[in-house]
Design a protein around this nucleic acid. Structure first.
Lengths: 343, 343
DNA sequence: CTGAAAGCGCTTACAG
DNA sequence: CTGAAAGCGCTTACAG
């Protein structure tokens, strides 16, 4: 670290061209002779030159900074989101800044706006459940800050988003259980207000209907996406006179709670009770038995979200939303229903 | 986003001073009259001015960028490290860039150096287990890049670091089990090569010695910090003719594996077997029964690491290493030894 | 296909 | 205690 860092001037001198030409090569602009381009690249390599982000940023009135805001629902989920967004940003030579928020909605919004203003963010990626906040969307709109939402709810807004088909996924899982011979299937709903909670419930209902299985209200319980609610609701479901032979929880944390309730009450999983989750979070593989669940392509969702944002920033267009595929992962927590006939 | 962003010139004009004075106020430099300072701050507020990082960075030859590199050992741990480092960086108006690495040591080092060069990082925070890599330390040294290590091993290097006393913590946990009347205590060692693995083993041995309990080699098994190794080693320990009444695993993931082995073999925890972990990771609270474990102040370690790095950068001194306190967290996985007399 | 000039918004180094 | 000038390393806008 002695003396000056090497700059575009050094490269220009070494390659025998003007700095504008170096700039063209570095930014993959057209109208450079192939030979000239090669000379410049050779000089870049020889001098181990790395362009200065601050200079570029200052001159182009663009920060090359993208923010990722999240209200950490679970560490594993968040890490995957970070990975996906980071990967795409790195490719485009943008920097990703993380910003975790928590607390009341009003403060959270102010917090995010302050973050965006202080860092002069070019754009923002909004992870769920923040992506479901109508107030936040409105506030970002008012700032004219480009943003992309991951798995948002039904809020109508022209900004792009990426998601999966929660209803279809829940329908598939329910039909998978039906296929195993289950006819009494409990369902634990996710936190009220989350769009995904409602969609998953809708998928459960649709599957029952498709198979002409009556909907039993007492089999459907309200949880909140947390372990404890899965535990408590399963205790209630298993205490029912005619208890369900399968329980489908709105996410893996609640499914893990369901497993614990079964252990407590001496109900064998999967022999006497099948349990299914949603998300394929890390907990799905650390509980016993490992959970049958729906795998969301979290990394891909975040990668794609970053991709859409960069497209907005670089071409100032408004890209179309993207819907990605989920998969049903079969593990050991589900099995043929006791006395059940497999279809 | 119409027209120009407000700059230091606008503030200077509005406050009736030179831009240098605005700069002084913003950077808390001395030699500004209190009245002038107030005028400037009022103008800053009125115009909702936020200084440009790129301009500041370009002029001061400092990127205000700090890197955090990690080889994600567990999502929960990583998230806590991020939180701590982010909090300190935000206070100092530095930006934190994440960089996750994986794979062979040589590639990892090259990857980190490329990251540092491309972003013109001012400094680097190195999380474990990367902080234990002698090759990495050497490479960073060669680049003259300031860095701070979190929980490094015994590598001698003048760069600062933060850690806890792993040996003392393991000693305390072992003595806690002894205090519950246990005399046959199994131990599952963490991944070989990790400094913490050896320190924790040392603490276990020291406690036995302090209490004149003979060291039984077959009670000590080699794991690798992963769930499966805890499962397998506990199966072996519980198959012993005289099986231990307590098992202390070198981390929580292995302790969770130990719990599953006990469930499998019909050994009641904690009535017939006490199980203790280390780290207080999220899994410690999702397994059943919840784990007694050692809580590392992960957030604080990272916060402090960032603090030391910033001190290095801003005062160009070399701060002293910091050692932080751990705590023993009692939960339901440990109890009085069967037929044990509590001391 | 290539380049010279101006300027982005700050800090540094200096003067008073 | 305050300020005018120079310059950080790029891109933009323009000229040829």
């Amino acid at each position: 670290m002695s003396g000056r860092r090497t700059s575009i001037n050094d490269v220009a001198k070494a390659a025998g061209v003007a700095i504008k030409t170096v700039s063209r090569v570095l930014n993959n602009e057209p109208n450079v002779r192939e030979e000239t381009r090669a000379q410049v690249l050779a000089a870049v390599k020889r001098l181990n030159y790395h362009p200065s982000l601050s200079a570029r940023s200052l001159a182009s009135r663009r920060s090359y900074l993208v923010g990722l805001v999240y209200d950490n629902p679970s560490a594993n989920y968040t890490i995957e989101v970070q990975r996906g967004a980071l990967a795409r940003c790195r490719e485009a030579k943008f920097l990703l800044l993380l910003h975790e928020v928590a607390g009341r909605s009003e403060e959270v919004i102010q917090d995010i706006l302050t973050f965006a203003n202080q860092t002069h963010l070019d754009g923002l990626i909004v992870a769920p459940p923040l992506s479901e906040s109508a107030e936040l969307i409105r506030a970002l709109d008012a700032q004219a800050l480009p943003f992309v939402r991951i798995a948002p709810n039904e809020i109508k807004h022209r900004s792009p988003y990426v998601d999966i088909d929660d209803e279809a996924a829940a329908r598939e899982m329910t039909e998978y259980l039906i296929g195993l011979g289950h006819r009494s299937i409990g369902f634990i709903i996710g936190r009220p207000g989350h769009f995904a909670s409602g969609e998953r419930l809708r998928g459960y209902k649709a599957a029952l209907k498709n198979h002409k299985i009556p909907y039993v209200p007492e089999y459907v319980r309200q949880g909140d996406f947390l372990f404890d609610s899965g535990l408590e609701m399963t205790r209630q479901l298993l205490a029912l006179p005619k208890r369900p032979t399968a329980i489908f929880a709105g996410n893996d944390d609640m499914a893990a709670g369901a497993l614990m309730a079964a252990h407590e009450m001496g109900v064998a999983v999967p022999q006497q009770l099948s349990v299914a989750g949603f998300d394929d979070a890390a907990i799905a593989r650390t509980v016993w038995p490992p959970l049958t669940t729906i795998c969301q392509p979290t990394y891909q969702l975040a990668y794609r979200a970053a991709d859409l944002l960069l497209e907005m920033l670089l071409s100032s267009s408004t890209p179309k939303p993207a819907r990605l595929a989920h998969t049903l992962v079969r593990r050991d927590s589900t099995a043929v229903a006791p006395n059940g006939r497999v279809k």
